[in-house]
Write a protein that binds this DNA or RNA. Structure first.
Lengths: 204, 204
DNA sequence: TCAGATAGGTACCGATCGGTATCATCTCCG
DNA sequence: CGGAGATGATACCGATCGGTACCTATCTGA
């Protein structure tokens, strides 16, 4: 693949910010997510980007750091999706969360879904200090904090417990979504979250 | 490693069934689970088993098939754990499930936990036909069926929905258990499952 | 006792891994 | 125009990957 390496800049309108690095990021993002980080070689990444290896290693110090950059990109779009309901329901944290969960349930119950890039990376890299794992762990800690915060805003009796329960459901959707195809267990996600929230809001 | 390869059969009482193959299975089990399947080379496996590569390839046609065998072993011990409460609570499916969930919550909230080998393998191998993925998918389908069956036995109004919700929680514990260390979200597992079950049992 | 199957070990295979040295080219700015 | 810094391409590195050909030791049953 990578038919004609040299001529024909892919997007003529690109400006300063190093188009090669950006193309590498995008190629890495697609391949890492689709096939897994360990399964993808740098050769495949640069081929997908239409560049060559030295271009990659000038923009990123190593494959591990490229993986970390991919996860930071992933994290950014995750939060975009997660907070997308904020504009629709500015004063209703429960509706906001529900909005995200509905979208997640839809995505996670069709064939080809591959789960959360961050969680997948943590599975692929159990070594504590790995750059990719570091990004994944920090992102998940932030999500946990945010969910507890939202549980608190909902008025839950024990926001920690509700936040953790919701995180279990979300991670369960990530995992089962890529194992079961269409019609997987994530179809029960919203109802389960509702039941959980109702229970924790109903407590004295 | 692999200090003295030849002498001293590991278990003197072993009969016919090829001790080398068994040592390879055990070494593969430890390494695959601890570090991930893709991260472990066959060299490390045979070194851990104190044998050499041809012994591995006489017992297993390929690394992929060895991974599949590892997952079948994993599946067997999983069911052992999952059904361990059957003896204690022969006529109480809810208590039986709770027993398993309590054990899982305990395991998943200590440092070094690595989640479910089957789920991890599905993350590492997204290709539909892969031997390891096949085993993982089939095992998870069986778990889903079993949970729905138990939900039905509990008298749930919609056993499918309850079973799926419980599966989300369990998979969430597998995932978060290996991301957060001690004190992770799985500490809320039992309470969340209770809330879910109560809700689905309380429905008309 | 001896044939033959079977298990184990040594040494090796081509392919691919992540990563780099070196040289050509392009672009912007004085 | 001219030259400097960034960008890209070719070709290559040692290490490791999964997998195998070949020889030896051992244990079995006739």
């Amino acid at each position: 693949m990578a038919e004609r390496p040299t001529e024909a800049p892919p997007n003529v309108g690109d400006r300063r910010p190093s188009r090669a690095a950006e193309r590498i990021r995008q190629s890495a993002r697609d391949l890492f997510y689709r096939e897994g980080i360990r399964a993808v070689g740098v050769e495949a990444i640069v081929a997908g980007a239409g560049v060559t290896k030295p271009s990659l290693y000038r923009a990123f110090p190593s494959k591990d750091e490229l993986a970390a950059a991919y996860l930071r990109d992933w994290d950014a779009v995750f939060w975009e999706r997660f907070e997308a309901g904020a504009a629709l329901y500015p004063d209703d944290p429960r509706a906001r969360l529900r909005f995200y969960l509905e979208g997640l349930a839809a995505r996670a119950t069709v064939d080809g879904y591959r789960g959360c890039g961050l969680t997948n990376a943590a599975v692929e890299y159990p070594e504590p200090g790995h750059p990719a794992r570091r990004v994944a762990e920090e992102a998940k800690r932030a999500l946990r904090r945010r969910l507890t915060e939202m549980a608190s805003a909902m008025g839950a009796s024990r926001p920690d417990a509700l936040g953790d329960g919701l995180l279990l459901l979300i991670e369960g959707a990530f995992a089962t979504g890529q194992i079961f195809g269409t019609g997987g267990p994530a179809r029960a996600l919203v109802a389960a979250a509702d039941a959980l929230i109702d229970t924790y809001l109903g407590e004295a």
